[in-house]
Design a protein around this nucleic acid. Sequence first.
DNA 1: GCTAGATGTACTCAAATGAGCGGTACCGGG
DNA 2: CCCGGTACCGCTCATTTGAGTACATCTAGC
Lengths: 337, 337
Amino acid sequence: MRASSVSGKMGTECSSERKGFRVASRLGPASLVQSAAIARRYYLDGRSKVDIAEEFGLNRFKVARMLDHARESGLIRIEIGHPGLVDVELSARLQETFGLTRAVVVDTGDDNAETLRTQVGQFAADVLAEVIGPDDVLGIAWARSVGAMAKTLPRLPGVPVVQLTGAIALPGSGDSSFDIVRDVARAAGGPAYVYYAPIVLPNAAAASALRQQSDIARAFGQVPQVTKAVVGLGLCAPGGSTLYDALSERDHAELRELGVCAEVCGVFLTATGEPVRAELTDRVIAVGAEDLRAMPDVLVVAYGTAKLPAARAALRSGLINGFVTHATFARALLDES
Amino acid sequence: MRASSVSGKMGTECSSERKGFRVASRLGPASLVQSAAIARRYYLDGRSKVDIAEEFGLNRFKVARMLDHARESGLIRIEIGHPGLVDVELSARLQETFGLTRAVVVDTGDDNAETLRTQVGQFAADVLAEVIGPDDVLGIAWARSVGAMAKTLPRLPGVPVVQLTGAIALPGSGDSSFDIVRDVARAAGGPAYVYYAPIVLPNAAAASALRQQSDIARAFGQVPQVTKAVVGLGLCAPGGSTLYDALSERDHAELRELGVCAEVCGVFLTATGEPVRAELTDRVIAVGAEDLRAMPDVLVVAYGTAKLPAARAALRSGLINGFVTHATFARALLDES
DNA sequence: GCTAGATGTACTCAAATGAGCGGTACCGGG
DNA sequence: CCCGGTACCGCTCATTTGAGTACATCTAGC
């Protein structure tokens, strides 16, 4: 009925930067509105540019250019959001920065240790459930954070579960502390290569003897088959790890001398991520650095920013390729790198 | 170095609707993060799906499916925004709902009449500057809102400017009230077909005589050439229009009888948008409904929600095809339609 | 008034993309 | 146990899209 084009041989300059509210586009309000209408059709209604061009009486190139301009000028905003508690932005940055196969950062509003453990554990459980396949063999290290995961684990495919380290009785929580691996094995329903043993023994001979014990030998025999491992993170400083706190003053001195910073699955690491062989290593019931390195997927579950230096060591070591943690932890890691 | 795929024959179900924070996707956190990373590459970095597929070791179909899924599940949000004071969303809705060629809705936080007049006037000026071309002929009606526009008009191409109606001296603002058309003509710099005449005369004979007057006849001679007109909006009720308030009680009665609701550029309209021929019509110095209908572009500038019924009449009339107003006005129009 | 550069427009061709299809693994119910 | 329903994967084919290019038009500066 009417001529209906905004385009044509017209001055499309817009005068009104007079109040400074022209954000980026130098186009007038009418083009702005048309751009918006076109953007809506394209991005929200999913119509093709050719369609839109016909509808508005333009050619498809004009439509494409208008869309380009609209995006440049910020009229169209595309956000990759937070659907829930996972901070996908942080997760992706963590993953890319440290070359991980996967990273999941949980954004708990609260940084209370209890909340963190629960939330991080829950998401670690989700990640494990997601990545585990029927042909995998699952390795589980003893750690508080892994315990938190074990408690909320859904049903898994019936994979074998292999205990990777001995345990330590936790002072507070009595019962389940020893049963982390058993809990996981129950969730899976597959064969369980588990044993009762402390992670550290008074001397190498005792440890060696214990490794001969049938359950333990059987479990260690399965270690090379492990395809997915879930491990905790210990900082080698007072209060930084249950293992460290269970060691003697002499052990502490040795670790200090060797420059040990972190402990992952019974493996001691320097700040630069080098695995260290200590006298202590022979007294530990756990897989070795080489076993760990041979596993295709090693997922670290860690919370509490005190452990940051340990996390850095672990990330540098190349022994791990997955990380589940909380937002403050991830942010600190990224800030300092 | 490591196997690095989240895909494969794995259960990708996610268990944790347990706390209800799984928004829409039933995928686990790891896929979530990967989807987000892919979405970022695609939408924000503008890479192609083939590229992304290579980078992540997937095929392009998988990438496409993940993106689709991510969009459906709300991970990717696309918003068409507010760059400045123009509410593009409302503008587009107004435009589409009433089949207009253009609509611009200004979102002034404030609904003070003074603010509205200034802001709406400013954006009307922008719109006019944007759509006017060097080959246009510009018609200007006398109206307070058009006056507000005239005051902030930037330099226009040197087009002819044609006065479409007589004027009324405003009670308050002394000087510029008569000079609206002259202001516009000055901004354009082209030939000005202007005259000094009241919009309404005591009798048809006086109006007829005045129309013979050379300036006025010259201006009316140009009316068929007009390609773009800017007009105001009057509600035919006390206080709804300067024209109405200038009329006699007899005139009011006539308009009431004829069911006149609105006045646009000297043309009286019923609530359904029918132009009405009254005795009064012969006493008005203004273009007729047919002249108005013949103009390819007629832009209404209106503010103040009291005039809503008049706006509805004008929109139904088919005489106009552009609208500049403010957010509360536009919302009310859309709500009631 | 004229030329150089900027801007907008139209077109071609190759790359990117989406729709739809068949094959396959998985799941829950007979 | 088999069987239909479902979801996923990888593919082909037709369409859509973007990059490059050439041409028209406008603007600014001399």
